[in-house]
Structures are given as structure tokens and as C-alpha cells.
């Protein structure tokens, strides 16, 4: 079809589609669509019986965006900031608005620091982190890891090998570093013993 004002024809008419597909066209009228128009006054206030909610007590200095006028009346209380990652997070919230890349990059950096702080802390507990069980990688054996991937034309196959590197790489590096430090210390002690 040439580039004319005509719309390319459809293979099925509305009547045929209505007969074939349950519910076809029941929301054809935009008035039946609940989010049309976007801004619509909600008379029922969805059950709210306040103009401004009571304030939830702030049990520790709650970090907040500097784009807010005040601490919101309700907020989540999961995982208060602590350690180096907590300091990074507090600084990021105190210093930068959401419009600054530095804000988000600092938070991402704090996430990585947080993970390592917690991995190290877990080794002081009866339940240290276990990358085998926590990654669920054992399901590769029980849930068709090979047949789900190979011969399937999956676009993500190109980067599948990156995931183990991302997960295991830092552990291997940290383990290698620890072994290196121990061996260095042993050599140092042996050398001192020999000198005597």
C-alpha cells in the first residue's frame, strides 16, 4: 500500500474480534477506564478520615530527601543506617537532592559497602553468609538449568557467565587476599624464628 491517508486494513473486523476474544471492547469507552482522566477527584478519599495524618514517632533521626519540606508523617522503619554504609547514606541524603547523580551514586556505593559489612559481620554469628544457598544456584540442577538455556535462542545467554563472576568474584578475591595475608604473616614469623 502506498503512503496515502488510508489506514492499513486489519485482518479481523471488530465483530469478529468480539466473537473470538472474551470481553473484547468492554472498555472501549474511555469513561469505563478507571484511570481516565489521569487526575480525577476521589470523593470517597478511599476511606481516609483525616486531612493530614497523625505523625509517626521518629525513633532515630530518619534520613530524608532535602526536596521534602519535612519528614513525611508515615515512613518505613526497616534497617536503620549504621556503620560506614550508614554514614555514606546519611551524607548523601543530607547533601544532595534527588536531581544529583552524586546522590544516587553514593547510595549505590553505600549498598556495596553495606553488603560487605554484613558479610563480615555474619562470620561472627552462628549463621555466616553462604553464597551457595543464598543464591539459590542449586536449583540449576533441580530446575532444568541446562535445558532451560541451551538451544533456546535466548538473548540473555550472551551475559550469563557474568552473573557468577559478579557473585563469586569478590568472594574469591577476598579469600585470596585473606590467604595471602596469612601466608605473608607465616613467612614473616618463620623468618623471625630463623633469625633467632
Amino acid at each position: 500500500m502506498a503512503y496515502t491517508s488510508e489506514r492499513p486494513p486489519l485482518t479481523e473486523s471488530s465483530d469478529q474480534l468480539r466473537a473470538r476474544i472474551p470481553g473484547w471492547g468492554v472498555d472501549l469507552d474511555p469513561k469505563d477506564r478507571p484511570s481516565v482522566p489521569k487526575l480525577r477527584w476521589q470523593e470517597d478519599r478511599t476511606g481516609a478520615h483525616w486531612d493530614f495524618p497523625e505523625r509517626q514517632p521518629e525513633k532515630w533521626p530518619r534520613e530524608r530527601s532535602i526536596e521534602h519540606k519535612f519528614l513525611t508523617p508515615v515512613f518505613g522503619t526497616s534497617c536503620p543506617p549504621r556503620g560506614i554504609s550508614g554514614a555514606l547514606r546519611r551524607y548523601s541524603y543530607r547533601k544532595y537532592s534527588e536531581g544529583r547523580a552524586a546522590h544516587w551514586l553514593l547510595l549505590l556505593a553505600a549498598d556495596r559497602v553495606d553488603a560487605w559489612e554484613n558479610h563480615l559481620r555474619s562470620f561472627l554469628t552462628p549463621r555466616p553468609d553462604n553464597p551457595i544457598t543464598q543464591t539459590g544456584v542449586t536449583s540449576e540442577l533441580s530446575r532444568h538449568g541446562i535445558s532451560s538455556r541451551y538451544g533456546k535462542k535466548r538473548a540473555d545467554a550472551a551475559h550469563h557467565l557474568l552473573d557468577p563472576v559478579i557473585v563469586a568474584g569478590p568472594w574469591i578475591l577476598a579469600g585470596g587476599l585473606a590467604i595471602g595475608l596469612v601466608r605473608r604473616r607465616n613467612r614473616s614469623l618463620t623468618a623471625k624464628g630463623g633469625a633467632r
Binding site: 484511570s35 489521569k38 487526575l39 480525577r40 477527584w41 476521589q42 478519599r45 478511599t46 476511606g47 481516609a48 483525616w50 486531612d51 493530614f52 495524618p53 530518619r62 534520613e63 530524608r64 530527601s65 526536596e67 521534602h68 519528614l71 513525611t72 508523617p73 508515615v74 515512613f75 518505613g76 541524603y93 534527588e98
Partner: peptide
């Protein structure tokens, strides 16, 4: 969505953009 029902956004049906539930960011609700 965590939402309050009465802020400027909730009053107009944008519950996902509630202004009273997320101190960490103004660009997203709770």
C-alpha cells in the same frame, strides 16, 4: 502502593505518587 488517601496526589487518584509516605524521595511514592 503505600498511600495516605488525602495528599494532593491521592485526592486526585494518583495513589502511587503519594507525598506523605516516602521521606527518602519525592520522585516516587511508597
Amino acid at each position: 502502593n503505600v498511600f495516605c488517601g488525602t495528599c494532593w496526589f491521592c485526592a486526585r487518584g494518583l495513589y502511587s505518587n503519594c507525598h506523605n509516605v516516602n521521606p527518602n524521595a519525592t520522585a516516587v511514592g511508597g
